[in-house]
Design a protein around this nucleic acid. Structure first.
Lengths: 217, 217
DNA sequence: TGACAATTAAAACAATTGTTTGAATTATGT
DNA sequence: ACATAATTCAAACAATTGTTTTAATTGTCA
């Protein structure tokens, strides 16, 4: 029987495989990633993936789930903002948190790229990713914007503004190579510049929506 | 010696390879695309790619160049707007043209996806793509926004707004699977709905920037 | 027509892929 | 300490990859 003596070192190779696979998948994509490269980076044997996960595809699905949990655990949807705060403050916190995930520098900087790849080259893991991760994020943003525009969250106008705000944040995830090449100084490099970018997107969007709620009859 | 009797049917297989390769590369990416699948779709022999292009990578570079030319030929940067028009009208025309390329339905609908892939998984073709295609596009947009904000095109504020506008358009290129799944009715399906989306992005951005130019000292 | 270049065709090549196998090793419970 | 389950390991497997080769076919000009 399996006993659980030390949950820390439990399944050590399994966790190392998840970490290594996350990096490799983010670097070269699912199909281009070789199990040999992953196992080598994890310091494991070639057969380790099939033993612990069954096959390469199951490993990929588990990696997405793993990265998902780690990312939201580190940067919750809203940072330090009470539920009763003004929607404008919530919007700023939401944008800031999303940008922190986009520009994550730590050992899990690969999880953003992993999501971008899943958009461009969907796999069987996409549906779960959308339902478990992206939809809750959009719902949270839609709630905030619904308050700002004073219209129901299902309103076309709210949905369009959600996309407008969201797109400005994930833009740096999907077009990083171009942004780095065209506007190097636009790419945040530390916490302060991430906050600056969050300030711009917040200001830009609030100004746009202020005009919206004023002009719409 | 090679003679050129009929420039239409000249290099027929070569063109068929370019078209077929464009579709396949857009569908599954460079590494996942097999020369067998491309040649089969082009109705050519397995060895045709190596004969006409040398190798698979050269074919890919040629495909990007080919798609680039076709796309801008069909949808110029500015649609039916004179050089002397108001910058607000130019902005609307620019956004509309960009969205037309993003939602292109014709036989070259794959070229947008090809660009998205190049961002996520850069190849040797990326630098040329940025310099020959993306930089001119951004420069055109920066000129328009520079007029609207009445600030030099090199101003940080202008650059940030260029990104804000641009991101709202290409968002539908990079996150199509999620948008289709989360807000199906948001995805334009004909010329009229593309124009509606262009109207929203234009209105959203103009409202934001109007506030910008008013508040910045 | 006949010689020669251009193109197409089928087959085979070497390299790499994910996966499986079966033995060796380690850890665990009594 | 022993028996048993869990895990690791090296080797090999079958399938697929881009490319090359060599012959057949087509087209072109003298």
């Amino acid at each position: 029987m399996k006993v659980v003596p030390d949950p820390e070192n439990q399944d050590a190779t399994r966790n190392q495989l998840l970490e290594a696979a996350g990096e490799v998948f983010a670097e070269v994509g699912f199909r281009n990633a070789t199990v040999r490269a992953i196992c080598q980076r994890a310091g494991a044997n070639i057969a380790a993936i099939n033993y612990h996960f069954g096959d390469k595809e199951t490993l990929y699905i588990e990696v997405l789930r793993y990265a998902h949990g780690k990312a939201l655990e580190k940067h919750p949807l809203l940072l330090d903002v009470p539920e009763t705060a003004a929607p404008e403050k919530k919007l700023r916190a939401f944008i800031h948190s999303l940008l922190l995930r986009v520009f994550e520098k730590g050992s899990h900087s690969w999880h953003g790229r992993l999501m971008s790849r899943e958009m461009i080259e969907p796999t069987v893991a996409l549906d779960a990713l959308i339902e478990e991760r992206i939809r809750p994020t959009h719902t949270a943003l839609a709630t905030i914007i619904s308050e700002i525009l004073k219209r129901p969250a299902s309103d076309d106008c709210v949905i369009l503004c959600v996309s407008s705000v969201f797109s400005q944040c994930v833009f740096y995830n999907h077009c990083r190579p171009a942004v780095v090449k065209l506007f190097p100084k636009l790419v945040p490099h530390d916490a302060a510049s991430i906050e600056n970018l969050a300030a711009h997107i917040t200001k830009f969007s609030l100004a746009a929506m202020k005009d919206f709620s004023a002009n719409i009859k």
